[in-house]
């Protein structure tokens, strides 16, 4: 009961501060404190949104971005979980993959952008490849740690009933890793979206990232802000969906502070 109250209060305060910022933003520009050229105003952005929505730009950009997102996230999910399971179960595989992971953590993935352009050309395939690399790491790393940190007591109990290694993998390691894997997917979703938008900034002819650079180069701040706000909303919605799925899968965890 009290917990619910606090959750509601947190939601209320969060919403309040968001509204506060939007109102302040509008007042600051209307009052002449800030040049609208730099940040536009909420009312102008809204007006531009209606225009872009009606002429179909919003739908075109969102669908182009979501198309690349879906492919990159899908591929990263399959590859990340498969590699993570192999590396988590076989220490040799983990050791063999280790340098690439260091690489991924320490070097910015965007640095490979020109290379991908050389291989795949400008456009969709390159965007998908970049976003795939963005999303791969957390999915792989979480799956790996989930499998690797399989509860020894549970594995021992399974062995006492005659479980073979594959039984332990399938019935103990894998189900026990699902919540950590879901957390990896949640992080991966945010990163895949970032990857798509960043790649679109450089070379695309559609998509939200493309719209942001396009209007940015034309100095049309309000038009540009429309796509920025949409990207933020998409990110929040996708991450929330994954958070929800995550909370469904780890209800059995005693320490899932939800």
């Amino acid at each position: 009961m009290i917990e619910l109250f606090y959750r509601r209060q947190a939601l209320f305060l969060g919403t309040l501060s968001m509204i506060g910022i939007v109102v302040l933003w509008q007042i600051a520009v209307d009052g002449g404190f800030i040049n609208p050229f730099f940040i536009s105003t909420p009312s102008q952005v809204w007006a531009e949104f209606i225009v872009q929505f009606e002429d179909g730009q919003v739908a075109a950009n969102v669908s182009a971005t979501l198309y690349c997102f879906a492919w990159s996230m899908g591929l990263a999910t399959v590859a990340g979980i498969l590699l993570g399971m192999l590396a988590g179960w076989f220490p040799d595989v983990e050791a063999a993959l280790e340098p690439f992971i260091w690489f991924k953590y320490s070097a910015p993935t965007v640095a490979f952008y020109p290379l991908f352009v050389a291989w795949l050309g400008y456009g969709t395939p390159t965007i998908i490849a970049i976003a795939f690399l963005f999303a791969l790491t957390p999915i792989y790393a979480n799956t790996l740690s989930g499998i690797k940190n399989t509860d020894r007591d549970l594995a021992k109990a399974a062995r006492s009933f005659g479980a073979k290694p594959f039984d332990i993998f399938l019935r103990v390691a894998l189900p026990g890793s699902v919540p950590v894997m879901m957390a990896g997917l949640r992080l991966g979703v945010g990163r895949a979206l970032t990857g798509v938008v960043v790649a679109e900034l450089f070379g695309a002819n559609a998509g939200l990232g493309y719209a942001i650079t396009y209007y940015g180069q034309l100095m049309q701040t309000a038009k540009m802000m429309v796509s920025i706000v949409i990207v933020i909303l998409l990110g929040v919605i996708l991450t929330q969906i994954l958070s929800f799925m995550e909370s469904k899968t780890d209800s059995w965890r005693v320490d899932s502070g939800r």
Binding site: D153, L154, K156, F161, G162, D167, R171, G176, V178
Partner: peptide
């Protein structure tokens, strides 16, 4: 075993079935 050897994601019934499944 001592405590904490039950599969936390399985129900009571699922846990009791576990040994049977393994064998």
């Amino acid at each position: 075993f001592q405590e904490a050897s039950l599969l936390p994601w399985r129900s009571v019934r699922g846990n009791v079935k576990f040994g049977l499944e393994m064998q």
